[in-house]
C-alpha cells in the first residue's frame, strides 16, 4: 500500500515518479513512462517479451517491482538505435528476417545486446542457449540466430576497423 518516489535513468534520461510499491517495472515503463516498445506476454516469467536492461543486465521487467529499480539505469528497445542509426543487432534482424510479428523482438534484441557484449564471438549453440529465456512464436528461431551472428560479425568488424 506504500507509495514510493522512484528516480531512475531511463535510456539516459533521469525521471522521477511516485508509484505504488506493487507497480511492476514493465507497467512503470509502459504506462508511466509511455515507452511501449517493451511488451508483456505472460504471467510466469516465461516469455521474455518484457526484457529490459537494468544496470546493463537483461531482466524480465514483469518480475521486478519499479521500486527495485530506484537509482538504476534502465535501457529499453527505444534506446538501441543511436541518432537514427540502427544498432548492428537491429540491422541483423532486418537483413536476416529475424522478426515477423515483432512482438518478441524488443526483448530478443535487449537479451542479445547483453549476450554479445559478454560473448562477442558465440557459437550457434551458445546463441540458442543465450536467447532461451525469450520465446518467439513466429520465426522458429533460425533467422534470429542468423541475425545475432550477423550482428556479432558486424560488431567485430566495426571494432577491428577502429
Amino acid at each position: 500500500m506504500s507509495e514510493h518516489e522512484v528516480t531512475l535513468t531511463i535510456n539516459g534520461e533521469s525521471v522521477t515518479r511516485s508509484v505504488e510499491a506493487r507497480t511492476l517495472l514493465v507497467h512503470f515503463i509502459r504506462e508511466d513512462l509511455s515507452l511501449t516498445g517493451t511488451h508483456i506476454g505472460c504471467d510466469t516469467t516465461s516469455c521474455g517479451a518484457c526484457t529490459v536492461l537494468v544496470c546493463g543486465k537483461p531482466v524480465k521487467s514483469c518480475t521486478m517491482f519499479a521500486v527495485q529499480a530506484d537509482g538504476a539505469e534502465v535501457e529499453t528497445i527505444e534506446s538501441v538505435a543511436v541518432g537514427g542509426a540502427l544498432h548492428p543487432l537491429q540491422e541483423g534482424f532486418w537483413e536476416k528476417h529475424g522478426l515477423q510479428c515483432g512482438y518478441c523482438t524488443p526483448g530478443m534484441i535487449m537479451t542479445a545486446k547483453n549476450f554479445l557484449a559478454n560473448n562477442p564471438n558465440p557459437t550457434e549453440d551458445e546463441i540458442r542457449r543465450g536467447i532461451s529465456g525469450n520465446l518467439c512464436r513466429c520465426t522458429g528461431y533460425n533467422k534470429i540466430v542468423e541475425a545475432i551472428q550477423y550482428a556479432a560479425e558486424k560488431i567485430q568488424a566495426d571494432a577491428g576497423g577502429e
Binding site: T45, T51, P58, K60, M64, S132
Partner: peptide, 9 residues
C-alpha cells in the same frame, strides 16, 4: 537453473 534472464535476478 531456469533461463539466462532469470539467472540475472
Amino acid at each position: 537453473i531456469a533461463d539466462p534472464l532469470v539467472r540475472n535476478m
